[in-house]
């Protein structure tokens, strides 16, 4: 049971990553490699600050800002210096590797003995007065784990709702239009370059947030933890689209969250059944490859009518 709870919690945390990837990859059709570096950046910044005695909320907020800054740099490389988008992300990702090591001072920061958001959530759980465990489907479930799960879920839902509201503002609508038709958005008086830069900042802010929360949940930050994360996020987005569809913005956002959680659960089950963890990235990449080369596959996987597809 604990295993399932942990898979769910990590899935929910990583749905912030999926939301970030959704913004860069789906809204701006920008394959943003920066994400691999900003997951670690978020983890590194928050861990370094927390072990130096900073409040976890403050540390997490600063991590988000650091991620947004990294995304903005990628955007500037691409839009101002006209560097290919993929390469812009790779440059920043590579630079971040060194930067992350500097921030951490070593390749791994354990946070076992310091208070993080997990500690807070645990205290909230204790304050409910439910005791150590509750019974669920006849099995004992640790209240502490349940509290962490609930707090994470509520937080992520709040973030998603805020994102949805943002994308319905004038600025957010202009951002979505930029990915759709940059020529048109220029003709309507917005700089498509600035929109892309702002969008990548937003995306990487979310990715850094995922990194910061993941580090606190796992109890350590590691300089390697970002590797493969972009493809991971992409897989979540694709599963979400297959599950919930792409017709509305709200569906896309909800899909990314469900996709992330479901994907994490599937992985937990597969590992449980004896899948070699070393093969995980290979299988994830294979899955995304299949989904990308056969868009029809997604439609067939979906139980809805194809007329609801995003393209008309």
């Amino acid at each position: 049971m604990s295993l399932v709870l942990s898979a769910l919690t990590i899935g929910i945390i990583l749905s912030l990553l999926a939301l970030g990837v959704l913004i860069s990859f789906r809204i701006f059709t920008f394959p943003d490699m920066t994400a691999e570096g900003t997951v670690t950046l978020g983890a590194a910044v928050s861990a370094a600050l927390i072990v130096h005695g900073y409040n976890p909320a403050v540390a997490t907020a600063i991590a988000v800002l650091a991620g947004a800054a990294a995304g903005a740099v990628t955007g500037i490389l691409h839009t101002r210096f006209k560097i290919n988008g993929l390469l812009s992300g790779i440059l920043v990702m590579t630079a971040l590797y060194s930067i992350n090591l500097h921030i951490m001072g070593r390749s791994n920061i354990p946070m076992m003995s310091v208070a993080t958001f997990v500690t807070w959530a645990g205290e909230l759980g204790a304050a409910t007065g439910l005791g150590e465990t509750v019974r669920f489907l006849g099995r004992p479930v640790p209240v502490n784990d349940l509290a962490v799960l609930t707090v994470t879920l509520l937080f992520v839902v709040a973030v998603a709702v805020a994102l949805l509201a943002f994308f319905r503002t004038h600025l957010g609508t202009a951002m979505r239009a930029t990915g759709d038709n940059p020529q048109m958005i220029r003709a309507l008086g917005a700089s498509d370059g600035n929109m892309i830069t702002a969008g990548l900042a937003l995306s990487n802010g979310l990715v850094a947030l995922a990194g910061a929360l993941l580090a606190q949940y796992q109890g350590f930050a590691d300089v390697q933890m970002g590797i493969g994360m972009l493809v991971w996020g992409l897989a979540s987005v694709i599963i979400g689209e297959a599950l919930i569809g792409t017709g509305k913005l709200g569906h896309l956002l909800a899909g990314a969250i469900f996709g992330s959680v479901l994907f994490r659960l599937l992985v937990a089950v597969a590992l449980r059944w004896g899948l070699d963890p070393n093969d995980l990235k290979l299988i994830t990449a294979g899955f995304v490859f299949l989904a990308l080369v056969s868009p029809g596959l997604i439609k067939k996987l979906r139980l809805r009518t194809p007329t609801e597809a995003r393209h008309a």
């Binding site: 503002t169 004038h170 008086g189």
Partner: peptide, 20 residues
């Protein structure tokens, strides 16, 4: 509606008020 909302801000600042 969203396209028209974009046009209603041509050349103006696009803030955080709801587009519609």
């Amino acid at each position: 509606a969203e396209n028209l909302a974009l046009a209603s801000r041509r050349g103006k600042v696009r803030g955080l008020t709801p587009a519609l």
